[in-house]
């Protein structure tokens, strides 16, 4: 708690909270990052689940830089938004659910990338197993869940 109180008293946090354009700018960046992340990972996971089989499975790796860029934008903008009211956000259950979903999505993504993209040279990745499809489905649930929880922070205790 002392740390959170200190965090929201920093000059940076005060600037985010009080500068007229800082908060909407950070929120806009956060929505943009969400669209990048969900767009790139949404297509990748749907492809693993069998959507658009004409897209080469391993080719979806090309989308990962966009997912990473979206994630980085959102980690940075999210952290900045967090500092503006750290105690409030930290004590929000919806915020905690969001962070938990992101953590689950992250662990899931590492396992999924390992299983789908780590293939012998020359292989096209074959068809994803039922287990891998479950992970891809879970990934969609975790990320969309994180987006929903994120929007609801403003409306819940």
């Amino acid at each position: 708690m002392d740390f959170l109180a200190w965090l929201q008293s920093t000059a940076f946090a005060t600037a985010v909270a009080e500068t007229i354009w800082a908060y909407p700018l950070l929120e806009t960046l956060h929505a943009l990052g969400m669209a990048m992340l969900l767009g790139a990972l949404g297509l990748t996971n749907l492809r693993i689940l069998g959507y658009k089989p004409e897209l080469p499975l391993l080719g979806t790796q090309d989308l990962l830089p966009l997912a990473w860029l979206g994630f980085t934008i959102n980690a940075a903008s999210g952290l900045a938004l967090f500092t503006s009211d750290a105690i409030y956000f930290f004590s929000s259950y919806t915020f905690r659910i969001k962070i938990a979903l992101i953590a689950l999505a992250g662990v899931n993504a590492v396992i999924l990338a390992h299983k789908v993209f780590r293939v012998p040279a020359g292989s096209d990745g074959g068809s994803p197993t039922a287990g891998v499809k479950w992970l891809a489905g879970l990934s969609l649930v975790f990320w969309v869940g994180a987006a929903i929880a994120g929007r609801l922070i403003a409306y819940t205790p």
């Binding site: 790139a40 080469p56 080719g59 090309d62 989308l63 966009l66 987006a147 929903i148």
Partner: peptide, 28 residues
């Protein structure tokens, strides 16, 4: 909240198409 999910579908897909037109993700 639903407006945000719609935004992700709309802008997420448009971005993938536009970036592909600009030369990103050529293996797709």
């Amino acid at each position: 909240t639903i407006h945000y999910i719609g935004l992700a579908m709309l802008v997420g897909s448009i971005m993938l198409i536009d970036l592909r037109l600009l030369g990103f993700a050529r293996s797709l």
